[in-house]
Design a protein around this nucleic acid. Sequence first.
RNA 1: GGCGCGGUAGCCAAGUGGUAAGGCACGGGUCUGCAAAACCUGUAUUCACCGGUUCGAAUCCGGUCCGCGCCUCCA
Length: 472
Amino acid sequence: MAEPLLYDSLSRSLQPLTASDGETFRFYCCGPTVYGPAHIGNFRTFVIQDLLRRVVEASGLKTKHVRNITDVDDKTIRQSQTEGKSLQAFTEYWAERFHADCEALNLLEPHVEPSAVDHIEIQVRLIQRLIDKGNAYVAEDGSVYFRVTSFADYGKLSRLHEREITTAPAGTLQSDDEYDRESAADFALWKAHKEEDGPNAWPSPWGKGRPGWHLECSAMSMEYLGESFDLHSGGVDLLFPHHENEIAQSEAATGKPFSRLWFHSTHLLVEGHKMSKSLGNLFTLQDVKDRGFSPMALRYVLIAGQYRQPLNFTWDSLNAARSALRRLQQLHQSLSAAADDTSSPSPSSDWGPFQPVYDALANNLNTPDALGKLFTAAHQIERDLQASQVTREAAADLLAAYDRVLTVFGFTFDTEAAPAAAPAEVEALAAARWQAKQARDFARADALRNQLTELGWSVRDAKDGYELTPAN
RNA sequence: GGCGCGGUAGCCAAGUGGUAAGGCACGGGUCUGCAAAACCUGUAUUCACCGGUUCGAAUCCGGUCCGCGCCUCCA
C-alpha cells in the first residue's frame, strides 16, 4: 500500500505518514472546549482528522488517536457560573452533546479522550519541571509563566520572526491580570485563583489555581503518546500561539522533539465569510438537521474541498451533497444486487477500480480529487453492470472493494433522516390515489396527485407501494 | 503594515508545463400509464487582468485588480 503523504506545517513540505516506531501512528488532536454546541466549522477539522486516521489505517498502520476535552478555561468557568451549575455538570453536558454529534457524523472514537480537569496533577508536574529548568517563573500572585526568551526555537512553527511580532515590554497590555509577566510574549502555565473563578481551583506548590490552556495539550499528549510522537493537529488558528506554545513547553521540559509532524486544517467559511455570532452564521449540526439534511450530507460537504483551501459552506452545497450520496448509495445497491450473496469475495485488500481514489486520498488528503475519481469509477461500473459484463463473483469483489472505499471516506447510508410522517388527511389521499392507480383509473390518480402536490407533498411510486415526502 | 491562502462553467470544486476531473443544477435520451427515482448523454476553444519565458502555460516569472484568513488563549 502506498505511503500517504501529508503537508507538514512545521517543515512546510509534504512528508510521508509513517510510524516512528514502525508500527503505530501516534497522533494528537486538539479537541473541543465544551462550553456550548460545536459548530460545523469545528467539525470540518474533526472530520478531516478522522479522514486522516482512516487513510493511515488503510495504508496498513495501526493508530493511536488522542483527542482531549478542554473543560477548564475562561469560557467553561464563566458560563457554568452564569448558569449556576458546577463546572463538572456543565462540561459533561456539552461533552455528551459533542459525542452525539461525532457519532452522527460517523467519526471514529479516539482511543483516548482525556479531560484537562482529570489531569491536573501531570500538568502541575510539567510546570515544576519547567520551573526547575529555568524556563518558567512564579509571579507575585502565584501564577506561573513560561519565559519565552529561554527557548531559542520559539517561533519555529509560526514563523514568528517573519511576522513582526514585537515583544512588548511588560505592562503595555491592557489585561490587568497579566501585568506581572517579565515580557508580554510570556504565557501562563498556571493561573492563580481569582474571585470570579468560584470554586474552580486546584492546589499546587504555587497556591490555588488552574492550569493554562496550552499546558493541558502538552501534558496529556506526552502522557498518552510519549514525549515524542508522530503528529499533532488542529485548526489553523491554533498554529499560533497555541501550538507554538505547546512546542516551547514540551521541548523545553524534555529536551526532545515534541511532535514530528503538524497538521492544520483551514477554516470553513459560510457564504464567503468567517463564521461568527455577530454575523449570525454560526451553524451547528442541529441546524443542519433542522433544515432536513442528514449528518452524512454534512460530512460530504466538509470533505468536498481540500483541507488546506478555504471551503465555502452554503445550504445549496448540502443539496448537492445529498444528491451525490444518493448516487453512491445507488451504486452500492446495484452491486449488491449483482453480487452472489452465497459467494464471499476473494480475500484481498486490492482497491480494484478504486485504486485512483485511494491514491488521491494518499496525496495530501485530496478529497475533491478522490471524490472525482470515485464517481468516474462508479460510472464505469454502472456501465459494465448494464451491459451485463460483470459476473456475480466479480460483482462481489467490486462490492468488497467499494465497501473498503466507503469506509475510508466514512460514508454510511443508514443515517438519512426518516421521511416526516404525513398528516392523516394526506395519508388518506395517497392511499386513495394508490387504489385508483391499481384500478388503472389514471385520471383519478392524477387528480389526487395534484391535490397532494397542492398540500405540499410529493408521492413516489415503487413496484409494490409508494412513498410520501414533503415537497420542497 | 507583516505573514498566509485564493480568484477555473449558473453553483461547488480538482488539475502546478503538454492541450480543462468530478459533483450539483440544467438540456436531450432509455425506462415507467403519469410523475419520481435510476442509468446513459450533452454543456468552459477557456482558467481575474496585463506583460514575459517556452515549440507549448490555468499551470513558470514580473506587474495590476479583487476576495478571505491569521497577527497572544477562535477548529
